[in-house]
């Protein structure tokens, strides 16, 4: 076959294009990390007087660590809410027929596709109408609700690969639905669920557009950073951003490994949008 010669010609510029795009994608992240060690501050080329001072400053900064704790708390509860409603939602979309199913499917996915401002404002109006005071609780409700979409897509993808004969066998052998769910369905979806939890946790830790409108007195980490950015920038923000990047990186790579283990290369949102 002469395909080799043909691809050789067209692939001459493609690798260079790919390198350029990767450069574009990673340049800001690399810059961010390099300047977190720069003694001269955020700007200035070349970076000089490498130092760990900004990290030292960061570790002594109580306001940041309070906001980190708030974010961890919010993310953990959001994972709980999103899974508690996202797993049944995926099951319902997979195996139940009910009036309004098509609308329900779209509604669940909407926060993933809609600009965050619309979801944030709509929830703000709900809390206003029901006289709920804005606090970390309202942020948790916002994150949990918006991220049901992620839990549903991930678990729905897992369900497509699930062999229903196992559940059927369990029911035939006399286990009730409750036992079948906990002993057969959930263990089979294990990888999808852990993957979804990781993704939801990471997204909640980083979320800002919805939180922006639902914030009370206590800041989450992204909102604490946002507040400081408006007052001017210091390499301390580079330092915390670099740490966020490292943690996101670990979570994403772990999630990816889990998804590959479960079903090959993942396609984010793909399966559910295509059905």
């Amino acid at each position: 076959m002469s395909a080799g010669k043909r691809t050789a010609r067209e692939s001459r510029w493609l690798p260079w294009h790919a390198i350029a795009v990767f450069g574009f994608l990673y340049l800001p992240i690399v810059t961010l990390i390099v300047y977190s060690f720069n003694g001269q501050g955020v700007g200035g080329f070349p970076p000089r007087n490498l130092t760990l001072d900004w990290y030292r400053m960061l570790f002594a900064d109580d306001a940041i660590w309070t906001s980190v704790l708030n974010s961890l708390l919010v993310a953990l509860v959001a994972v709980g809410i999103a899974l508690a409603f996202g797993i049944p939602a995926a099951l319902a979309l997979d195996r139940a027929n009910f009036p309004g199913k098509a609308v329900f499917r779209r509604l669940v996915l909407l926060p993933l596709i809609l600009p965050g401002i619309i979801t944030g404002l709509s929830l703000l109006m709900l809390f206003r109408q029901t006289d709920v005071k804005l606090s970390l609780v309202t942020i948790v409700l916002g994150h949990g609700t918006a991220l049901i979409s992620v839990a549903t897509t991930e678990v729905f993808a897992g369900l497509q690969k699930l062999d229903r004969a196992q559940e059927e066998a369990s029911l035939d052998l006399g286990a009730n639905y409750w036992h079948t769910f906990w002993r057969v369905t959930i263990p089979n979806l294990r990888l999808s669920i852990i993957g979804a939890a990781l993704l939801i946790f990471t997204l909640s830790m980083d979320e800002i557009a919805v939180s922006f409108f639902l914030i009370g007195r206590d800041n989450t980490l992204p909102l604490e950073i946002w507040g400081r950015l408006r007052r001017g920038i210091t390499p301390e923000i580079n330092a915390i951003s670099s740490i966020i990047f490292i943690f996101s990186l670990i979570a994403i790579v772990t999630w990816y490994r889990l998804r590959v283990g479960a079903e090959g290369q993942p396609q984010i949102t793909g399966e559910l949008l295509e059905t």
């Binding site: 800001p28 992240i29 946002w226 994403i252």
Partner: peptide
Amino acid sequence: WVSYLVRAYAWKTI
């Protein structure tokens, strides 16, 4: 999946 805010901030410093 890496923080929106982190990336927007990085461009600001650049």
